[in-house]
Design a protein around this nucleic acid. Structure first.
Lengths: 172, 172
DNA sequence: CTTGTCATGTTATTCCATATCATATATCCG
DNA sequence: CGGATATATGATATGGAATAACATGACAAG
């Protein structure tokens, strides 16, 4: 995704929360749009890469590299770590997937194709992950960085806590 | 640090950047104040824990658990992973040390004793780490979280980029 | 003294990640 | 077309991060 970036339409930004939605359609759409994005940008969404993206879209949770690897093996792909890591590297580099540093794990991006610095809400109970925009960090951290002479290139913002579902369950 | 928390005086907040400073004194002071904080709060800053804290204070960089472990071995402490991880756990739990998720590594806190949600600036070239305040994330992320019904308990904010020194060197 | 708690030691295992070398498959260009 | 170049996969090995599980020691409270 070195070129062809464009802001994503608002209506695609909406369903990034913990709410219910038509998951099959959601996965379908995401895969189709990923294919198109790759075509437009001369990227190769090879079978392994597509499979890994599909797996991550199926979950709305972070998957570890070895969980991914296990499933790849079941599907008849190579089963050595580099297979998963290379696919993940491609998907992360091109904005289809994000790494959750807190968990050393990966989630599908909620609105690929958009230039964005994501922020994540991670449920410590069920590992669900929701993506939001993190224009925020530019604010006071940006000021601190300017003051210190530090050049920010990338920012990781990850909030840990309880998702709506688990909050409800906890109250019972 | 379950009690006895108090805002840290402004003059202690200042030297959190990348600038030069009298390092020996800085380490000394930090250790002394850690000891006092522990005494006040009924915490035991045992030899291993003290040593680990001292090591982290010596560097102004993140150290991996195994780097720490190596040095512990040299100093005659136990050399199995749990030794380091337990000491680190204590230091993190009580606010003397922070974990840098991006690096799977640890840094000494710049102003322990203060209730704070830290933000970090991490140099991708030399691994130097500076700590700043992250009141920021409460802003737009907080709004997103409220909208989604997500209860934030902790926030990780880590900016990656080039520190002043490495920026200068890069320009040459 | 014994019971409980906290800290440490030790062994083993699991998970995360990458270096390296070999092989295959596109893609570009003469 | 055919060869050069870049990109993708396969496979082996290894290193680093993290924790589970079990045993021992130190010490304070009852």
């Amino acid at each position: 995704m070195t070129s062809g970036m464009r802001p994503v339409p608002e209506d695609h930004m909406a369903p990034i929360g913990f709410g219910d939605h038509d998951h099959d359609t959601c996965v379908e759409n995401a895969l189709t749009s990923a294919e198109q994005l790759c075509r437009e940008n001369g990227l190769r969404l090879t079978p392994v890469r597509r499979k890994v993206l599909e797996m991550l879209l199926q979950e709305h949770r972070a998957l570890g590299a070895y969980a991914i690897l296990d499933r790849l093996r079941e599907e008849g792909f190579g089963s050595q770590p580099p297979v998963a890591y290379r696919a993940l590297d491609f998907l992360v580099r091109n904005g289809f997937v994000h790494k959750i540093e807190r968990l050393n794990a990966f989630v599908a991006c909620s609105h690929p194709g958009a230039t964005h610095s994501p922020a994540f809400m991670i449920c410590r109970k069920c590992d669900a992950v929701a993506e939001a925009q993190a224009s925020t960090a530019k604010g006071s951290l940006g000021a601190a960085a300017r003051a210190a002479g530090f050049e920010i290139e990338r920012t990781v913002v990850e909030a840990e806590g309880l998702c709506p579902d688990c909050t409800k369950k906890a109250r019972k």
